[in-house]
Amino acid sequence: MALSDTLVFDERLFDAQVLQKAAYRSINSLTVDIKSTGGQFFCALSSNIGVDEISFLTAVQEFKKDVLDYQLRHRLNAETQPIKNLILGLAFSKTGLTSE
């Protein structure tokens, strides 16, 4: 019988993509179904076949940490995207691949 748990995330605080990335990262231990209702994301976590209780609980804990990590990454990437493009532009400008 598969072990399961449901986690709830406030849509205002977390992006769907963030939850999806966290879900992807734990794909070796569990599967995640994500639904959105009433301003909240409901994540139904189910253990993969052959995963015991301790491993499942650990995976759920990891999932929660991953969600926070990915949310932070999302913020970081959004903020640094412009300067990243500037740096890459600088890097490639001397190669003749971009016009200068």
Partner: peptide, 10 residues
């Protein structure tokens, strides 16, 4: 300060 692009992992 301003952030420059970086990545992180545990």
């Amino acid at each position: 300060y301003e952030l420059l692009p970086f990545k992180f992992d545990r």
